[in-house]
Design a protein around this nucleic acid. Structure first.
Length: 764
DNA sequence: AGAGTATTAGTGTAGACAGCATGTC
DNA sequence: CTACACTAATACTCT
């Protein structure tokens, strides 16, 4: 099917596609057109990654926009739901090209939001499922006149943490607008038919790919492929299997993506695989890699960051959630540009932004699972997702995905389990208390259900109900949850009527798990006098909305001791040491709280990552979550007219900026963070007004002679004459004594002149 | 002698959404 | 209830 034959799309789109070199639809795309995607028909597309899913979505969205709005507007509106924030920006960038023919795009996620009013005027809005849910809860008006919704990666409905949100949100959108066109994009799954039935959609189900994907298993000295052939791929003595395959890919001019099952393994593998890459690098490549490595080092001053940079210099990299988001995108970009020849990654990369590779090596196919008591095999779906990253359309002649076997039996097992096997069906995880707790409350609070019957009617529109292996169960759990919500005064019951209390409305709007809210409310109620930051950090750290930090050997003793030392600060009772499970998780929360306290006491990032055994990405994640939960706590306190709001606000500001009390005012000046605030303070400038009055040479000295920075900061502080012309830095304020980190040479933007000095000293 | 390699015991385990009001070093 | 790879320390083997 030719793109030129398509009708009902905005003028200019066909030309845009032609300019991109697209004149003929891929078979799955043509099937979507035949299924009526251009005429507002619901479509479920269950197709492999990189087989043109995005264009299917675009056909649906753009034809809906062109058809015109249901809400009386002249053009329609489309909503594109993604599972990750990083994907939201990726999609936005893709859709931005449509602005040439008058279709505008906006993004809405938790950390990045196009301004509210402006957003409502966009034709396409990209958002995460949680954000869409939140917009529905908060009654965003434009949500009602969405004409086409695209749900990307809908197979994630199977995820027990986040799946229910997508499932419920889809059901709500469809209830809000019965004429809504639904397009669901999914990886190949076992029950696509069932998904289509749920969404009243036509099904496009194919395994067609634009470039060939060969799957296989490596064992001994041979690579066995799914077409029955095998190829010699010897492993030299003393060489690892993975290294041999990476080497082989390299000889063929391709890059490799290695999936492993832990962060530590990812880092170790990257170091070893870089040994394979390094000797083959050209001087030019080395230079470019050095630039990337310098950027990586400048992201964060931690061991993880240094280790990553050291690998990158040698042509390899690791990728996992302990990295800061900037680290991740630097690695992703360099890999996409083929600068990096190998990346070893945890599953972060399988689900994330587009990072195709000639060859994908699934090294570990089992992963530790504490709840299951040991190593568990990965889902077929997950392994297929990883394998689907093999082969770049237009760049690679083919893609190859390889599993590793260490015995003949394992070779057979891997073929049966992953190469020839069909992926599992997607199963709704809605009928579980944590999921229903939050969604039942939201459903009641935002008026989707006013009685138990209406609630059950609404739930009947979910995938869970249509799967119906145990229809009773959803109802049972819902009743348990209603009872919980009533007991905690989030919901009131009057005869058949269910109504959210004022507190319940707040909790729903704040997007809190009701159990987190209950914990916070109880804790704040128990406060005597002014709560300390540690007390508040512990309170939010023990809610289910905060991931727990893992207790290592020795931690138990350390934190038990700390718990007794600082017992008066905790809000609410400390569980008995003999209630094993509860006490253990209470201690993990204490560890998290302690980390947040360190951060708010200006402990260096590298000290924190070392002390708590985490990566820079984890620190930022925890800080971010704490900030969010403290904001919620502040609003709950205001709602309940509790006298703790100032204490919460201070604790929140302190984690937000990562500074002690005395620096709060300075850190509030734009352009001043924890480090600059500390330097200014130590130079005798303690407040914003002092910054306006201060001797310029002192300011410049404290800022290590950076004139541009100093000018910006003075201007932001509200100083009229902020020019630094002719000012020379005051030497007495130079660092070196108070804050050790900064003294080793100025890392000015761009080039770095580092570690040559340190390295050579040990050589004697 | 010294580098490379086998053996052993001890250790720790993937991921990441949301509010609100503006901006790191 | 199930495993596994990594690391570091130590013993062994080849040139």
């Amino acid at each position: 099917m030719k793109t030129a034959d398509l009708s009902g799309l905005p003028p200019g789109f066909i030309e845009y596609l032609a300019a991109e070199g697209i004149e003929e639809l891929y078979p799955p795309q043509a099937a979507a057109v035949e299924a009526g995607i251009l005429d507002g028909e619901n479509v479920v597309a269950s197709v492999p990654t990189a087989s043109g899913k995005t264009l299917i979505a675009q056909l649906g969205m753009l034809s809906a926009i062109e058809r015109g709005g249901s809400g009386g507007t002249s053009t329609g509106r489309a909503l594109y739901i993604v599972p990750l924030r990083a994907l939201a920006s990726e999609k936005k960038a893709e859709f931005e090209a449509f602005e040439d023919f008058g279709v505008s795009v906006g993004v809405s996620t938790g950390n990045y939001e196009s301004d509210g009013e402006w957003l409502a005027d966009q034709d396409i809005i990209v958002a995460t499922s949680e954000k869409v849910d939140s917009l529905v809860r908060n009654g965003a008006r434009w949500i009602d006149d969405v004409d086409c919704v695209v749900a990307d990666e809908v197979h994630l409905i199977d995820d027990s943490n986040r799946g229910p949100t997508l499932e419920v949100t889809m059901a709500k959108l469809r209830q809000l607008n019965p004429n809504l066109q639904t397009v669901a994009l999914s990886a190949t799954v076992g029950n696509a038919e069932e998904m289509a039935t749920w969404l009243d959609a036509e099904l496009v189900d194919t395994t067609w790919r634009p470039i060939d994907l060969k799957k296989g298993v490596h064992f001994g000295n041979a690579l066995h492929l799914d077409d029955g052939t095998q190829r010699e791929l010897p492993v030299e003595r003393g060489q690892k299997q993975t290294a041999a395959i990476v080497r082989d890919t390299l000889d063929d001019g391709g890059s490799s993506l290695v999936f492993v099952n832990s962060r530590r393994n990812a880092e170790a593998a990257a170091r070893r695989l870089a040994d394979v890459i390094e000797p083959t690098l050209s001087p030019e490549a080395r230079e470019e890699l050095a630039t990337v490595a310098a950027e990586i080092r400048s992201v964060s001053d931690t061991e993880t960051s240094d280790d990553l940079a050291a690998c990158v210099e040698r042509g390899g990299a690791f990728h996992h959630a302990g990295l800061a988001p900037e680290h991740r995108s630097l690695v992703e970009d360099a890999f996409r540009d083929r600068l990096l020849k190998v990346v070893s990654a945890t599953p972060t990369l399988a689900a994330g932004v587009n990072t195709p590779s000639r060859r994908v090596i699934v090294r570990d196919w089992r992963r530790y699972d504490g709840t299951a008591g040991g190593m568990q095999p990965l889902d077929v779906l997950e392994v297929h997702q990883m394998m689907g990253r093999a082969g770049r359309p237009g760049r690679d002649p083919y893609g190859e995905a390889v599993l590793l076997a260490s015995s003949h039996d394992e070779l057979d097992e891997l073929f049966d389990r992953y190469v020839y096997a069909d992926p599992e069906p997607v199963r709704s995880k809605l009928a579980a208390e944590p999921a229903l707790r939050t969604h039942v409350l939201a459903t009641i609070a935002s008026g989707f259900a006013r009685t138990r019957d209406e609630l059950l009617d609404f739930l009947a529109e979910t995938l869970h109900a249509s799967q119906a292996d145990d229809p009773e169960r959803l109802e049972q759990v819902a009743d348990t949850v209603i009872e919980y919500l009533e007991r905690n005064e989030f919901v009131s019951r009057d005869g058949d009527d269910l109504d959210a209390t004022s507190l319940g409305h707040t909790v729903s709007r704040l997007y809190l798990d009701p159990m987190s809210a209950a914990e916070i409310v109880d804790g704040l109620d128990a406060a005597e006098g002014k709560p300390t930051p540690l007390g508040l950090y512990h309170l939010v750290s023990r809610t289910p909305d905060m991931y727990e930090l893992y207790l290592k050997s020795g931690d138990r003793e350390e934190y038990t001791e700390l718990a007794y030392e600082r017992e008066p600060e905790f809000l609410g009772p400390m569980p008995s040491e003999f209630e094993d499970v509860r006490f253990e998780s209470w201690l993990s929360a204490l560890k998290t709280a302690r980390m947040l306290e360190d951060w708010a006491e200006e402990v260096d990032e590298d000290r924190i990552t070392e002390r708590y055994g985490v990566g820079p990405g984890d620190v930022r994640g925890k800080v971010d979550t704490a900030e969010w939960l403290l904001n919620a706590a502040e609003q709950l306190a205001a709602d309940l007219e509790l006298d703790v709001t100032p204490a919460i606000r201070e604790a929140k500001k302190r984690v937000e900026y990562g500074v002690s009390d005395e620096l709060l005012e300075l850190a509030g000046v734009r352009g001043v963070g924890r480090k600059r605030a500390r330097r200014l303070y130590d130079a005798g400038i303690e407040t914003r007004s002092q910054l306006r009055e201060a001797d310029k040479s002192v300011v410049l000295g404290a800022l290590r002679g950076r004139e541009k920075t100093a000018e910006t900061i003075l201007e932001n502080a509200g100083r009229q004459d902020y020019s630094m012309d002719g000012v020379s830095p005051d030497g007495s304020a130079r660092p070196g004594d108070s804050s050790g980190e900064e003294s080793e040479g100025d890392r000015s933007d761009g080039e770095t002149t580092d570690d040559a000095g340190q390295a050579s000293l040990g050589e004697f």
